[in-house]
């Protein structure tokens, strides 16, 4: 059994070590993307005219191949994890910004009016009313962004040993060992499924107030946003 997970020494990691590295390289950018997307989305909700150009910019950024980012970033951040994670964080915006904007906009007018009439200031209203109600849509966006990030990390192998599980693909080809390629592909897929499942768990914990039927709707919403 242990032979199955034995890796060539040039990878400098155990299989488990690669899995953890993969998770870190995939999820830190999404987290960072979320931190940028939250205020950006709020700005887009407040200033309606800003939303189309922001959407346009995030889409264009998403269309830039990661290789092009690497070429530019290597001068500044070298052959490091950071060089892989920066483009991933930028890519996550294309899903997260619309997910948050749509989520916050989906809060019913009556609810907002009621909150205002009860003496909620704008900040309190955003934190205590709009964000919690937008949570399902935001988490749906996080699911799409995280899964896509997990699969994208593999490109990191192009700049030396920064592709985590992706590096196994390279090793598998060099040493002609299909086992390594399977370990990479299956490992990445399982990881993506697990991350997705974990986020579903988070959503269920955070939103006991959602009717069952409505849960599907937020998913289709996020998928529409992802497109």
């Amino acid at each position: 059994m242990s032979e199955l997970f034995d890796l060539p020494s040039d990878l400098q990691h155990s299989y488990f070590g690669l899995v953890m590295l993969h998770l870190r390289e995939a999820l830190l950018p999404v987290l960072f993307g979320l931190l940028v997307a939250l205020p950006l989305a709020q700005l887009c909700v407040r200033l309606r005219w800003l939303y189309p150009p922001v959407l346009w910019v995030t889409t264009v950024l998403y269309a830039i191949p990661s290789l092009a980012f690497f070429v530019i970033l290597i001068d500044y951040t070298g052959l490091s994890e950071l060089t892989v994670m920066i483009p991933l964080a930028i890519y996550s915006l294309v899903v997260l910004v619309p997910a948050i904007v749509d989520g916050v906009r989906s809060v019913p007018q009556e609810t907002l009016a009621a909150a205002t009439a009860m003496g909620f200031g704008p900040v309190r209203r955003y934190v205590q009313v709009q964000l919690p109600i937008a949570a399902p849509a935001i988490i749906a966006g996080l699911r799409v962004a995280s899964v896509s990030s997990v699969s994208l990390v593999s490109v990191g192998m192009l700049i030396g040993n920064q592709g985590a599980l992706g590096n196994l693909l390279n090793s598998g080809m060099i040493y002609n060992q299909p086992r390594l390629i399977w370990l990479s592909v299956v490992g990445t897929a399982v990881l993506a499924v697990l991350v997705d499942a974990a986020l579903i768990g988070v959503r269920i914990l955070l939103t006991p107030w959602m009717p069952r039927g409505a849960r599907k709707n937020t998913r289709t919403l996020a998928k529409a946003a992802a497109r």
């Binding site: 009556e110 009621a114 939103t207």
Partner: peptide, 10 residues
Amino acid sequence: IQNAGLFQHR
């Protein structure tokens, strides 16, 4: 308000 405007998350 019309439709009550309750906080659905509370």
